[in-house]
Amino acid sequence: MPTGVALREVRAQLFGAADRVLRRDGPSGLTSRAVTAEAGCAKGVLHRHFADFDAFLAEFVLDRVERMDEQAATLRESAGTGTVADNLTDALIAVFGSVAVAIVALVTFRDELRARLRETWPAGVPVLTEAVVMIKDYLDAERGLNRVSGDPEGLAPTLIGSAHLLFADRTGTPPDRAAVHAMVTTVLGGQA
């Protein structure tokens, strides 16, 4: 690898490279060398910007959680439009069609990463807990419009857990929209 290569937005480049490596090779393939090779930079670049690889991974995970904010706002704004089941189906496909499933495996795979995340994220796996909040907020809005009668506190984690099970095999074919929609309508008890 050449050294001295000027990188613009180093963090974004390294996070993008980590995204691609994680999707392609899974948690066991995500190494500092793999990330820097994917980003086309020297290994030292990562270590100049992060204390160590687990610090990089913790910031990578939290960056991916922050990216869910826009999706959460879009979902909340959809309350009262379309059908609840369609809105939830689209949101779940977007969450689990991203790198979220691989991040869950990564957090499970690396003890030090979990320890680092606990410093700022007290419980759960960040992408999943943030997705539960996103779904709960949307369901609260729909409940306020009398379009959902179930309890958002129970429905949101059930929807996220069920969707995660549908998408969990990151090497297989992801479920189609019809399968996700069927799961959503089942969890909602046909009310959407």
Rank of each mutant, 00 (worst) to 15 (best):
T83R: 12
V84Y: 01
S78N: 08
R116G: 01
V61K: 01
V125P: 04
V95R: 07
E66S: 14
G80E: 06
L57W: 03
D111K: 10
I135S: 02
A105T: 00
L145H: 12
L106N: 00
R114Y: 12
A102Q: 15
V99G: 04
R116Y: 09
E77F: 01
V101K: 07
I135Y: 07
T129Y: 05
D86T: 07
T81Q: 14
V104M: 05
L88E: 05
T74C: 06
D140G: 00
Q71T: 11
T74D: 15
L88R: 05
K136A: 14
A115K: 13
R110Y: 02
V125G: 02
G150S: 13
L62F: 03
I103N: 06
F96N: 04
S78Q: 13
R64K: 15
E70R: 14
A141V: 00
T74Y: 05
S98W: 08
A91Y: 00
R143C: 04
A73Q: 14
R118N: 05
D140L: 11
G82H: 10
V148K: 07
V99Y: 04
L92Y: 06
D140K: 11
T129A: 09
D63L: 00
A94N: 07
S78H: 05
V127P: 03
V65Y: 00
T83I: 13
I103K: 01
L113Q: 03
L113K: 03
Y138P: 02
G144F: 09
Q71R: 12
V104K: 11
A73H: 07
S98L: 10
I93K: 10
D137K: 08
L117I: 04
G97M: 14
L92V: 02
D140Y: 00
L139K: 03
A94Q: 10
S78M: 08
I93C: 10
V65G: 06
A72G: 15
F60C: 08
E59N: 14
N146P: 01
N146V: 12
I135E: 03
E66Y: 08
N146M: 15
V148H: 06
T74K: 15
G80S: 07
A100P: 00
T120A: 13
D137I: 00
G80P: 08
G144L: 08
L128A: 09
A115C: 07
A115Y: 09
A85R: 07
V65Q: 04
T120H: 14
A115E: 14
E112P: 07
D151Y: 08
E112I: 06
V95C: 01
V84L: 13
A115F: 11
